[in-house]
Design a protein around this nucleic acid. Sequence first.
DNA 1: TCATAAACGAGACGGTACGTCGAGTCTTCGG
DNA 2: CCGAAGACTCGACGTACCGTCTCGTTTATGA
Lengths: 211, 211, 211, 211
Amino acid sequence: MSPHKAPDSSRRSDRSRRAICDAALSLVGEVGYARTTIEGIAARAGVGKQTIYRWWPSKAAVLMEAFTDEGARRSADVEGVGVAEDGELGIPDTGDLAADLKLVLRATVDGLNDPAAAAPTRALTAEGIMDPALGAQFVENLLEPQLQLYVTRLRAAQEAGEVREDIDPRVALELLVAPLTHRWLLRTLPLTHAYADAVVDHALRGLSVRP
Amino acid sequence: MSPHKAPDSSRRSDRSRRAICDAALSLVGEVGYARTTIEGIAARAGVGKQTIYRWWPSKAAVLMEAFTDEGARRSADVEGVGVAEDGELGIPDTGDLAADLKLVLRATVDGLNDPAAAAPTRALTAEGIMDPALGAQFVENLLEPQLQLYVTRLRAAQEAGEVREDIDPRVALELLVAPLTHRWLLRTLPLTHAYADAVVDHALRGLSVRP
Amino acid sequence: MSPHKAPDSSRRSDRSRRAICDAALSLVGEVGYARTTIEGIAARAGVGKQTIYRWWPSKAAVLMEAFTDEGARRSADVEGVGVAEDGELGIPDTGDLAADLKLVLRATVDGLNDPAAAAPTRALTAEGIMDPALGAQFVENLLEPQLQLYVTRLRAAQEAGEVREDIDPRVALELLVAPLTHRWLLRTLPLTHAYADAVVDHALRGLSVRP
Amino acid sequence: MSPHKAPDSSRRSDRSRRAICDAALSLVGEVGYARTTIEGIAARAGVGKQTIYRWWPSKAAVLMEAFTDEGARRSADVEGVGVAEDGELGIPDTGDLAADLKLVLRATVDGLNDPAAAAPTRALTAEGIMDPALGAQFVENLLEPQLQLYVTRLRAAQEAGEVREDIDPRVALELLVAPLTHRWLLRTLPLTHAYADAVVDHALRGLSVRP
DNA sequence: TCATAAACGAGACGGTACGTCGAGTCTTCGG
DNA sequence: CCGAAGACTCGACGTACCGTCTCGTTTATGA
């Protein structure tokens, strides 16, 4: 069915896989995404080009996996802690939804404003915009898990009577998150803590005057 | 000061400029952004490559100008009409903000869901995400004028007493527009009329229960 | 040490090498040396440009090798004949040096006067004049072997008592050959059989009156 | 007859002409012939490219004229001296042909061995080898006048009884000059005073044993 | 325990496009 | 109204990477 026989993944060299991911990450950090090449990754990893082409369809896919890996490794480092200590591991629930959201969104703002950390994510996002398959992977592996945390927190708020029952948490979350993403990706206006607060306030209280 | 002396733009051939923009637009339409090359544009335009490199720094910049030009030409075509006939020329004001926004956002959804029309915009957006200079141009020339229409409409609603006085129209607009952009760019979930309506309803009424 | 690592010549594709040489020779024959380009050679040979740049430093070097190759192939064709049948394979020795030299130099005149055959040699010679490295290769591979034949014949004439003992064969040979080369390259005056004869006569008998 | 109307040479700006020649000579001296370009000459001369194309067919032709000019200027500088003081202004006649020729040819050797002085001549010669029209100009303007000096001297030697009557001075001169040119252009072996002497001796006395 | 088949490193290959250079032509403007 | 200035089309340059394709060389079972 497939024009080429699939490689036997049980024989795959994990040493090469890791070296490739590491090389990809470091190169993106050093020269940026656009000037990172498959040849460069292979050279830095001490690997034949074919070993990359055998297992990944594109440079972006390599980076995708490198990112996912890195995330998994970081998660593993804190496994068993039992308590979320930052936005990545759950949104706090102090009973004050506005405060909790502001805390998390301010942290998000800080993360997005760090140029070194965010540049590769930005590149990967842009690539995912053009390449649907890659974009789907990006959303599934990196974005959606984050967004689900908002769903969870918003449902809790509904049960606590803080949020109206007729609210769709999935839509609500996008009201909160999309504006930050918008400013981050398109650079229309500065992305600040004040903006994060304003988004939360506007979203929670609504635009309309009270009926 | 500059490493290369700037060309004298008063001597610029407008015939070449237009041919290049036309060729760029048609090529992007035919083969997509990624497979459009500077050489291809030059060949189709019957122009030397150097004439492109003399005036534009990148393929994306050519397309940027081609888009802006096209927009300007379309605007010129309807000049003097006096009445906005679609969302690009102003948001209607029937006195019912929710209805007006739904109308416009549904039209936006339709535009974004048209693959042929939206693909080049998507590519240009992605390119602007990676290249700040280009992104700034994109925002200034194409995006911001659209967003200002929302500001205008929201201010009118404030004056009409439909929208609370303590709302910042700039933030409010992003609450409405960013979620659509988010789904369009990241393809997290389908972009439908129902979603546009839900965004408007959630944004206007707010998430919180009434105090 | 070297700015670029040398390619591994054991992996070199001989098929490509031959195709490139053949293409180069045929192109020079068809359009002349100046209008032969590396791109043209690559295209005609069905080869990537890089494959030429990997192994040769210049267009002239390609032709140099093509010429040498062709010479080697022609020599191989007549191997085992045992008897020289033309000037390229040795200067005849009939005991009459003047007659032998006239024979050979007349043949040389004919070769140099054939425009099709001599044009590439002329181009290569001119290129070698400007580029010392190439010139050295030209002399070593193509010219010097020819000149040695004269040394051999002149030594035989010395042993036979035809030529004075105090003559340096290397200088003598240049007295015979350089005038023809001079007229051929610089086109001062026509290059004829009569001229070849005159050169031999003048050189053998000397300019001075008898003491 | 000509496809383009010939420019009116009476209107020609001599200031431009000189500036172009000067620029050409200085550029060839600084960066070599191959890397001297028409654009470079025009820029250095403060002249439009068209002003060069109007009056010369090629880079080589510009240099040709520049050289001729320079030669004429140098000759003018010593006009009226009445006595030739070097090979360029006539071959001395002391009554000893061998000595006179050695003197001149040694001076020629020195000139040809000076890399700075000879490089442009070498380039022009090479160009003349490939381009017959240019070569004819080179021979007529620069080479032939030099060679005629040898004819003159050799005829004097014939009249003085030093040289045999049946010698053709034109052939004889080539016996003397061509070997030096040969070594100079093709770099087969070093070009030394000893070689110049050997050429004179071999040519005057001949190769054959006395009958 | 070894043979054997796969993945591996290395890198040459045919290609495409890059961005630059210069050729020679054409146009504009200033003295 | 000539000529400087330089923008134009064109073609080739030499480079960078692409993705494919051999080459030997590990390596890791399964016969």
